[in-house]
Design a binder for these strands. Structure first.
Lengths: 144, 144
DNA sequence: GTAATTGCAAACGGTTTGCGATCTC
DNA sequence: GAGATCGCAAACCGTTTGCAATTAC
């Protein structure tokens, strides 16, 4: 296990954190635009690198949109997303209820559900078994 | 209102359909590799264009992976996806139950859920209102 | 015959990487 | 002063587009 050095408090990194708290499900570009207000010369690469590192270190979550753009989410608790088909705006649903979601959304948020996509992540039976076999005979890892 | 012409039965398109039935959640590249077995010279562009058209015409569904690759799904009914964190394999969960999913998956499929992401799509209150304001020019059915 | 479809090459857009310059600690 | 971080340019990779040649109807 390699241990990463403590991140340095650069102006850029601090501003990125600040912007993440101000913005709601921003893309890297959204963050860039926010940071640029105070550091006009920041490079997009710096934004990408810092965001990715924050995700790697667990300070931040991210998810993919249908159009292939990564969005970032400073809310670390499990929760759902509500995405409007028309304007594309994404809002949060706290992860309390799991049942009757469509009805509740319709009644309480006036959001008319037309589709949904739930992706559960975890470890499949095959991989669990493979991991068990590897505890005595370690070969290469499949992990991405 | 433009009406699309009926797709022509090209060899390529027919093979793409055939491959979609053989493959499970394929990427465009997967489909390409499958079609190439019978038409070695097919161009990837042809695959992309046909897949996109099938999606546009509702014959096919598609969704984004976390890595930004589009996957295609010939199962048109609503259903969930189960994705293994290690091997990345995606399997289907029929959309019958909505409650106690993690427990059931754990028990019945030996799948250890570590995370999930549910994105509900629909029309938000703002957009519904916006559409209502435009009611003098009725274009689509958002109401009821 | 003619409009749709293909193949090819080039473009695109979001993201990543290599590297020398700069900044934190 | 050493190593982390930055800025820049170029690469990357999946996907899309423009266009001339080919094909289905």
């Amino acid at each position: 296990m390699k241990r990463k050095a403590v991140p340095r408090k650069t102006q850029q990194r601090q501003l990125i954190s600040k912007c993440l708290h101000e913005l709601c499900h921003p893309s890297a570009e959204d963050v860039w635009n926010c940071v640029r207000k105070e550091i006009p010369g920041v490079n997009k690469t710096t934004i990408y690198r810092n965001l990715r590192r924050m995700v790697d270190e667990g300070e931040l979550k991210c998810f993919m949109t249908d159009s292939g753009v990564m969005l970032f989410d400073s809310t670390l608790d499990r929760h759902y997303h509500l995405r409007c088909d028309k304007c594309g705006k994404i809002s949060d649903i706290p992860s309390a209820l799991f049942d009757r979601i469509a009805e509740i959304m319709q009644k309480e948020k006036q959001f008319k559900i037309t589709d949904y996509n739930l992706t559960l992540s975890g470890i499949c039976a095959d991989c669990q078994e493979r991991a068990n076999r590897k505890t005595s005979n370690p070969d290469q890892d499949l992990g991405s």
